[in-house]
Nucleic acid binder design. Structure first.
Lengths: 283, 283
DNA sequence: ATAGACGTGCTGTTATTCGGTACATCTGTA
DNA sequence: TACAGATGTACCGAATAACAGCACGTCTAT
């Protein structure tokens, strides 16, 4: 779910080339752009898949062929191949519908997203504005893995390297992700609240409170709960449907933070995470 | 995220027809099954899309053509059409990768899932075992909509009709979904805790506690918080990645519930929701 | 400077897809 | 019951559309 209702989400991506055959002959366009040959079979097949993915119940062959302007036999043939490929199933009532394999492929896109590249500009911005160590993190069980890091420009540095990991319950990047999925992770993490500093949250009660506060304010704060006197601030990166798949964080020694500076950094972190989330909406 | 790490999720769906051309000539199979003609263009195009969806960074033309056993020119052509159709983009470094449109199409499958049909057996089971009113609900803003209902067989009935809705914070189906997305919905619902009975949760503090308890136990309990002396029990239906998209609930007047019966029903509800979630993994 | 690998455009040939037709089944109506 | 229309599926020859091979410009690394 994630906020959006499960039915009828309008697609922000325009349907390119709705009628492939329409441009096969007409080149009367003032701009002499390359006509860009498209394989019609592939195009039609994907159109069918797209249409089926938006169908509440399945749809029939004739029905589909009429909507897409295709021959019945052609539509049938394409549906047949899509079925044997596992992207479509046909129920006993002769109705065709998209399978979860379609969903899986789409999910794979997100799972293998090159966040590093997409988030790079925002990480750079954060580094420039704060001068502190910037982290890009993804969840891995009850830890976070830092898949990208921009080194601090300050003389005093924090030292978790790129590729390293940290427990989810005591760093800001981790807590931002934990808060976003607390319903699923609470039971798993309750017995793994390992203590690293005297600030570390080690009881479920305190974690509950901290997660509630984190959810309320929209970003996470670590007051030196993993490394002594190393503070961090983190916010979640979300897909268009609200799923939190990663987080951005800033880590800094407390001595670097003058009064009010922490709030500035929090705002920047949220802004950065929000920026990446927005970017994800458009490719 | 949702428990599963964002990288390298093994696909449970086998790749049917990895080499389409392999079966075009050989029919020496003992079983004389229909050869099932597949449109090779569509097949290859989807193979490319699938491969691309699993690629961390983009992939090159030659690279792809080698892996899939296709001609370089053929691969290029297919990539070209996929690009103009918006499913693929090619970066400045000449690397091709899948776009979020692929994800959107997959997402649409889930959004338009005919849960009614899929959940029907479990709803039937619940009805048979409990004899009470059974609900299948999806989220809609801060409410739930009952997209399916099996009427109670008991003389005393609860009366929310199929198609009706109820506030998320006071019915079990709603609370199960609320708990599954509490990080996103908490701030939205805090000012909408409308009172319906003396049992209704109207303060954020009490809701926090109830949600924590719900998350901990895995199902939601409504002690007559919407309709006086009408209790309900609900559990979330989740996609393979953990997203809660719907919920199943049982509603019953308190007089129908003998001692210990409530726990039986809770177990059944969880079992039913779990069953539907499992079904979603295989189409 | 050179050799290999890469992405891209072109073209003729062939294999592939296409459209028409046919038929069995089903539904609702006269 | 008979009929009319719509449906899903099978088949087949024709021609179109997709294919393989080659050529070219570019880039990288040796």
């Amino acid at each position: 779910m994630r906020g959006a209702p499960p039915f009828a989400r309008p697609s922000p991506v325009p349907d390119v080339c709705k009628k492939a055959e329409a441009l096969s002959e007409l080149e009367a366009t003032t701009k002499i752009e390359r006509p860009v040959k498209v394989d019609s079979t592939l195009s039609k097949g994907l159109q069918i898949l797209e249409t089926l993915s938006k169908a509440e119940n399945g749809r029939g062959v004739s029905d589909l062929s009429r909507e897409l302007g295709l021959t019945k036999s052609n539509t049938f043939r394409l549906l047949q191949t899509l079925t044997t490929l596992g992207y479509v199933r046909n129920s006993k009532t002769k109705l065709y519908s998209a399978t979860m394999k379609v969903w899986q492929v789409g999910q794979a896109v997100v799972d293998h997203l090159n966040l590093t590249e997409i988030a790079a500009p925002q990480l750079k911005m954060l580094s420039k504005e704060t001068g502190e160590a910037i982290y890009l993190a993804v969840p891995d069980g009850l830890s976070v893995i830092y898949i990208e890091k921009v080194e601090s420009t300050q003389p005093i540095r924090s030292f978790t390297p790129k590729g390293g990991s940290a427990p989810m319950h005591c760093v800001a990047t981790g807590k931002a992700l934990l808060a976003a999925n607390y319903d699923l992770l609470r039971e798993q993490i309750r017995d793994h609240l390992v203590k690293y500093t005297e600030k570390t949250i080690t009881t479920l009660k305190r974690l509950d409170a901290d997660m509630a506060a984190t959810q309320a304010r929209g970003y996470a704060i670590d007051t030196g709960e993993y490394r002594h006197r190393i503070l961090s601030f983190g916010a979640a990166i979300r897909l268009p449907n609200g799923d939190a798949i990663a987080s951005i964080g800033v880590s800094a020694p407390d001595v670097n933070l003058a009064a009010g500076r922490d709030q500035e950094i929090c705002d920047l972190v949220m802004q950065a995470a929000e920026g990446v989330s927005e970017t994800l909406k458009s490719v």
